[in-house]
Computed example of a mutant assay.
Amino acid sequence: MDWDDLRVFLGVARSGSLAEAAKGLRLDPATLSRRIARLERAAGATLFLKSPRGYALTEAGHRLLPHAEGMEARARAGEAALAGGEALRGRVRIGAPDGIANYVLPGVAARIAGAHPGLGLDIVALPRVFDLGRREADLAVTVSPPKAGRLMVRKLCDYRLSLAARRDYLDAHPPIRTRDDLRGHRIVGYIPDMIFDADLDYLGEVGAETPGLASNSASVQLGLLRAGGGIGIVHDFMLPAAPELTRVLPDDVRLTRAYHLTRHRDAAGPLVTRVADLLAEGVRADVARLETE
């Protein structure tokens, strides 16, 4: 397979959009479409499902993704070796929702900092949208990809969420065999008028009622569930930190969302670009690892 075509594949897979990938790759969308078609012919498989919402990976696309990312990593390692393996120096601020900021980014940031002692990383954990135009952060992790502004957006990874509760809460309340059985149970969730991203409005999707215990923070919601406060939606990558919780309706309620990494086009210098690459690699690896624990 042609490496240039795999670069196009990665660009479209991460952004979920031909137009957004074209901006990042500095190619026109028609060229990208032809390159994707050429790659699909070479692979003998359809790699993307096209819909009005954008481009989504097929099963074959998901199988190809880690191999393409491996080739990308080897190419970057070669570039670093030719450049003398120069360590990164400077400071980069990363804004992120508190769930990923508390349970994924610390490990990723610690490894990056360990490899680059001259690099400083700030993690700003706030449940809101960051204004990159006003330099509130150099890089921002978002759920829904921003649509406006001079921004560069790449998809980081999909992540999964489950309905969960303490075992002793479940033992003390009526059994839950279907979604209808959620009625009457105390629900933990976001404060409805403080949901800053429509993709975080989970409860309507699972047929649950307005939360009886609510917070604008995913980490506080996890604390409420760990305290036996009720039933709520939890990121799967947070569950290893809460062994007292168990999934509820695991065969029926399993949500999927995606994280995106965004930066302003005026902050596209080599330091931020390299940190973005390292961050993306680390987040993908750690989310996949934590979700399987």
Rank of each mutant, 00 (worst) to 15 (best):
R254N: 13
I100Y: 06
A115Y: 01
D266K: 11
H235A: 15
G207V: 09
I36M: 13
E79S: 06
P174D: 10
A96I: 07
R38Y: 00
L47F: 07
A101V: 10
R154V: 11
D266Q: 14
G204I: 01
L39N: 04
D236F: 03
E72L: 15
L222T: 09
I191M: 12
A198H: 08
L88T: 06
M71L: 14
V248D: 09
A21E: 01
E40T: 07
G70T: 05
A280H: 08
L82T: 03
L249V: 04
L271V: 10
L182D: 13
A172C: 04
R7V: 13
G223W: 01
R7I: 09
D131I: 01
L88D: 06
G120C: 04
A148S: 04
R91M: 06
L27E: 12
A242H: 05
V283H: 02
I94D: 02
G230E: 03
S51H: 01
V104Q: 00
L161P: 00
I112S: 01
E281M: 02
F130Q: 12
V153K: 05
G230W: 03
L126V: 15
A13L: 09
A113D: 00
S162I: 04
G54D: 03
A137N: 11
L261D: 02
I94N: 03
P270M: 08
G107A: 14
G229L: 06
D181N: 11
D266C: 02
A45I: 03
F196G: 06
A75E: 13
P175T: 08
